[in-house]
Design a protein around this nucleic acid. Structure first.
Lengths: 332, 332
DNA sequence: GGATGCAATCGTAACGTTACGATTATACCT
DNA sequence: AGGTATAATCGTAACGTTACGATTGCATCC
C-alpha cells in the first residue's frame, strides 16, 4: 500500500514535505505541491487512518450510543431514518460513525464510561434520555464533546437536539377531540423516558383544556412492539367503555392496533379514531384512515452530527439546542 | 488514558512483559500475569486500537458494502435485520462492523477498490450480486478475504451466503395456483440482479409445470418502493384481464399493493390473492389475508460474519457456501 | 565446577503519521 | 562584502503497540 515514504522516495523529498504538501501547507513550494499530488493520485495514496489517529489523537470517528429496546430489534427498524441521516451527514463531515448498541439490561453509565476510556472516538451522541440523566454530567465533567438526542432536567447548559414531543402529543390529542373523542388512549414507552414524559404532558394539557379528567387506565406503557400494542388495545376494546381515540407511539404501535381492529372487524375512521407518529411514511400507505404526525428523523440525525461537529471543533463554544416540530397530515 | 507504559512503570516491568502478560504469554511468570492484570483492571486499561492496528496490520474491522436502492432510503428499512444480525455477530467475534453505503450511481467496482486501497479493513462483505459480478474476481485476485451475499456465475469457488430465491418464488407461485390463480403477477427489482433472476426462474418453473404461458406484462421491475408497487399494481388492476394473484418482492411491495387495493375497495383473499416475502414479520400484522414467506435475515447476517471470520482466520482454507430456505405461513 | 538448558524478562525497532525545531539556499539591504 | 530576512526543505521524535533477538539468573548435569 502506498504511503508517504514511497511518495517521498519517488520525488527525492522528505516525508515531512510530502505530508505538508498534501494538506496544502503554506511552507511548501506551489510546484512541489502539484508534483506531490500528482504522484499521490497515480499511486492511489490514501492516508493511513491508524497512523493519523495514533499521532494526532483525532480518530475522525463519532460514536452514537443507542439502546435496542426489544430483543428482536424490530422496534429499531423505525430508527433507521435517524441512523441513515447520521451516517450520511457524518461521512460528509469527514467522520465515520460507529453505532454502539446497548441491550436493555446494560448499564447506561457503564457503556458511556467504556467509550470514554477507550477514547477511540472524537465525540459521542447519546440517545433515549431519561428525565434525570446522569450521563450528561459525566460527559461534561470529562470534557468529552457530545450531543444528546433529547433533554434532561439540568441547569448546566449542554448541546441537544430534541423533538417537540409535548406539542406533538398536544396536537394529536386535540385532533382526536375534534373528531368527537373524549376517551382517548395514549401509548408511551417507559415512564422514566423523557420523550414519554413530554408526550404525557402534552396529552394532559389538551385534556385539561377540554376539561376531561385523565383516566390512568387509558395510558399504556411499554409500547415497543406490535405485539404489546395489539394486546393492550385488545384488552381495552373489551371494556364496557372502550376508548374512542388512540394516539400511537409510532408505526409499530399503529400496526399492532390495526391488527387488533382488523381481527375485531373494525376500522378506524368512524367508531374509533387513530393518530400516530411516523418517521418512515409507512403509515401513510396503510389502507386505513389515520392522522399522521410525520417527524423528520433523518433531519434530526443530520442535525445531531452538525451540532456534534461544532462541539468537537470548538469545545468551549456556545452549545446549540435545537427543537424539531412534527408535520401533521389529517389523512382525509 | 492508561497504556502499557504506565502499567509497566508501576510494576517496574518492561512494556514487552506487560504486553505479553495481558495476552497470557507462556513466557511470563504466572504470578506476574496476575499482578499485571490486576493493575490493568484497576487503572481501566483498554488496548489502543490504533496502535495495535498500525503495528499488526489487523484492523479488527469488517466492512459491509451495500447499496441504498432509493433516494429516501426507506427500502433499506427492511435490511435492518440483516444489518443487526451482522453487527451483533461481528461484535461477538471481536470485530467492529463498518457499513459502507453506496448510492445507485456509484460504480460498484470503484467502491470495492477504494476499500481495498485504504486497507483499513480485514475483510469485506459484498451484497446485491449481479449475474456476472466482476467484484468477485477482483477480490480473489487481490487476496482480500470476503464473503458474498448472493451468487454470481463464476467457476472459481468463493465464499457466499445466499437465499434460495428460486425455491421461494417457485413455492409462492404454487401457493397462488392452489388458490386458483392463473394470471400471476411477480415483483422484481432489476433484471441484472441475481436474486431477481432466481425469483424469475422459480416463477417460470412453476408456471411451466402448470402449463401456463408466461405473460411478460405481469412481470414488474423496479419494485423498490411502496409508491412504485402501488402505481404498477394500480395500472394492472385497470386492465380487462387483471392479475388474480400477486407475489410481492418484500414488505414494501406488499404495502404498496395493499394501498392500491384499499383505494379500490378490494381486499386480498377472494378476488385476488397475495403472497409476499418478509424479513421483519411486519406483514403478519397487517389486517389482510396474505401468505408470507419469512426469511431470517438476521440469521443470514450472522452467517455472513461467521463465514467471513473463517476466511480471515484461514484465507487458504476451503470456502463455505450456505443457502437459506424460507419458511412459509399461509395466513389462515 | 564449568558447561548447558530453561524460565523470565528486557531493549530495540518498526508500523504511518504529524509536530517541532533545525538547516539549507536564495534574495535583499546597507 | 557582510549581514539578515525569507522561502523551502529536512531530520528527529513521538503516539501505543507488537515482534524479534538478546540478556539475565538459576538450577541441573556430567
Amino acid at each position: 500500500m502506498a504511503n508517504l515514504k514511497q511518495i517521498a522516495a519517488e520525488l527525492s523529498l522528505s516525508v515531512t514535505t510530502v505530508s505538508r504538501a498534501l494538506k496544502d501547507g503554506p511552507e511548501v513550494h506551489p510546484l512541489t505541491i502539484v508534483r506531490v499530488k500528482e504522484v499521490a493520485k497515480r499511486v492511489g495514496y490514501v492516508p493511513n487512518h491508524h497512523g493519523f489517529a495514533l499521532k494526532t489523537g483525532r480518530t475522525l470517528t463519532m460514536t452514537a450510543i443507542y439502546p435496542m429496546e426489544t430483543q428482536d430489534h424490530l422496534s429499531d427498524l423505525l430508527k433507521l431514518p435517524l441512523i441513515e441521516g447520521m451516517t450520511l451527514a457524518a461521512r460528509q463531515a469527514g467522520y465515520s460513525l460507529s453505532i454502539y448498541s446497548t441491550t436493555p439490561d446494560d448499564d447506561p453509565i457503564e457503556s458511556v464510561q467504556r467509550q470514554l476510556q477507550a477514547r477511540s472516538t472524537d465525540g459521542l451522541i447519546i440517545t433515549r434520555m431519561v428525565s434525570s440523566d446522569p450521563r450528561v454530567k459525566l460527559l461534561l465533567d470529562q470534557g468529552m464533546p457530545f450531543v444528546a438526542f433529547g433533554r434532561t432536567d439540568l441547569d448546566t447548559p449542554y448541546a441537544y437536539v430534541d423533538i417537540d414531543n409535548e406539542q406533538i402529543a398536544y396536537e394529536a390529542t386535540r385532533r382526536l377531540m375534534d373528531k368527537g373523542c373524549r376517551r382517548i388512549a395514549l401509548q408511551l414507552l417507559v415512564p422514566e423516558d423523557q420523550a414519554s414524559a413530554m408526550r404525557l404532558a402534552g396529552y394532559g394539557r389538551a385534556m385539561a383544556e377540554a376539561g376531561i379528567p385523565i383516566d390512568q387506565s387509558l395510558i399504556g406503557h411499554g409500547m415497543f412492539t406490535m405485539e404489546s400494542s395489539a394486546a393492550w388495545f385488545d384488552r381495552m376494546l373489551a371494556w364496557s367503555d372502550p376508548p374512542t381515540g388512540l394516539a400511537c407511539a409510532n408505526e409499530l404501535g399503529l400496526l399492532g392496533a390495526l391488527h387488533t381492529l382488523g381481527r375485531r372487524g373494525l376500522a378506524p375512521g368512524s367508531d374509533i379514531h387513530i393518530v400516530t407518529r411516523d418517521s418512515t411514511r409507512l403509515s401513510r400507505f396503510l389502507p386505513a384512515k389515520i392522522g399522521v404526525h410525520f417527524v423528520d428523523m433523518a433531519g434530526v440525525g443530520r442535525k445531531l452530527i452538525e451540532v456534534l461537529e461544532s462541539r468537537i471543533a470548538n469545545p468551549l463554544g456556545p452549545v446549540a439546542t435545537v427543537l424539531f416540530k412534527g408535520e401533521f397530515d389529517p389523512g382525509e
